[in-house]
Write a protein that binds this DNA or RNA. Sequence first.
DNA 1: TACTTGATGTGGTTGGACCACATCGCCTAA
DNA 2: TTAGGCGATGTGGTCCAACCACATCAAGTA
Lengths: 227, 227
Amino acid sequence: MRTHQLVLQWIENQLSAGELTLGGRLPAERMLAEQLEVSRTSVREAIRILEAMGVVRAGVGSGKDAGTVVIADPTTALGSALRLHVATSHLPVADIVETRVLLESWAAARARTDSPALTEAAALLEQMDAAVDTEEFLGMDVRFHLALAEAAGNAVVSAMMGSLREAIQSYAGTFTANLPDWDATAARLRAEHREILAAISHNDGARAADLVAAHIEGYYKEAGLAD
Amino acid sequence: MRTHQLVLQWIENQLSAGELTLGGRLPAERMLAEQLEVSRTSVREAIRILEAMGVVRAGVGSGKDAGTVVIADPTTALGSALRLHVATSHLPVADIVETRVLLESWAAARARTDSPALTEAAALLEQMDAAVDTEEFLGMDVRFHLALAEAAGNAVVSAMMGSLREAIQSYAGTFTANLPDWDATAARLRAEHREILAAISHNDGARAADLVAAHIEGYYKEAGLAD
DNA sequence: TACTTGATGTGGTTGGACCACATCGCCTAA
DNA sequence: TTAGGCGATGTGGTCCAACCACATCAAGTA
């Protein structure tokens, strides 16, 4: 067992036991090192991993944002992992897209009408009508789809959805560049978003799922993603 | 930009550019530090993260297993991340199980009959008949379900499946302890496995998906998982 | 030829030092 | 008394130099 893993295990135990909770603070690196009788380097390596996993956030200085505090951001962890493995060509982009369709259509079929996330999605729809900048539109599109996923009420699916999106975000520019007519595409996307929301509102989960699948697959097909 | 992130970025670029490929070796830590004009500490922090992400494996000594080599193990990365967030109570176990049902039934519906993974699954079925030890049975059960997922031919889904399994592995003992009659349960699981494989062989994807969903949900329900 | 033994190179770990930063509280001057 | 400044304190961020354990390889030796 390497030293930093010992530190990792100690922290994970603290989390499991509820002695470290969301928003809580880890002991200062120097204190933790002394307490566990390891070097500060090893403590830092463990914290670096937890940071990459979206479990903690390290901040310098004093007071409010200082110290190493516990957060809960599973999305970045999964996103970074997926992105790195896409970089090694071990995870095909087509598989990412396929998985996204799978998760998102499931979420659409299962979305609860009374979910606050759904209200947020509807609000985003209005904002997207006013958006003129392509990048601004895409940013809201991301949030719209994430809100849709959240409406299903499954935290794991939401996190995975977000991470899939993040993993191929660097390709977004390439995709839009391949589109023959962005304005036309944007108009179509808006219309499809409305249809999806309408289907969910009418409790027609099956139709919502089909619409979402067609929505996503249609976009990537138009953008020329080889599959 | 923190120093270790610079190192991380450099390595990720090397991966994307194909200058570092699977099985390839990173420069030695001291060399890399000198080359990028950073301290060895920062290089090590970056490598620690990549290691946690399942992108590299570090080995001491000389020769074959020595040095830091590029691997491709997305499962452990996702698994660790999920496990940690389960520890913080931010990801409910019920959501993990639900996601597993979702992914695995999709995979069953989409499994290709000619997949080598399916052959492996069939072979595991035979071995499970001979297994007497509970732990041994469970180990093969994990591999059976992973083989099923691989038969669908989507690397992302396979990785996620494996990670979900890993994230709740520590609960496996609790689940089996809750079962009233392990032998009866094991017999049922074996029979259900056979049905699932049969459905796939007959190209009845829809039935296979239903069977898988009932198989998993039935097990956790019997084991008393609150949902 | 077979075996020992040292050289070499790898990651693993440690302690100490210094920096940048943000806050808190004392002290000074108005 | 009050307002401002300014140093003390504690945080993570970075770097350096040294040493360890380990695995291999090559030279030397019996």
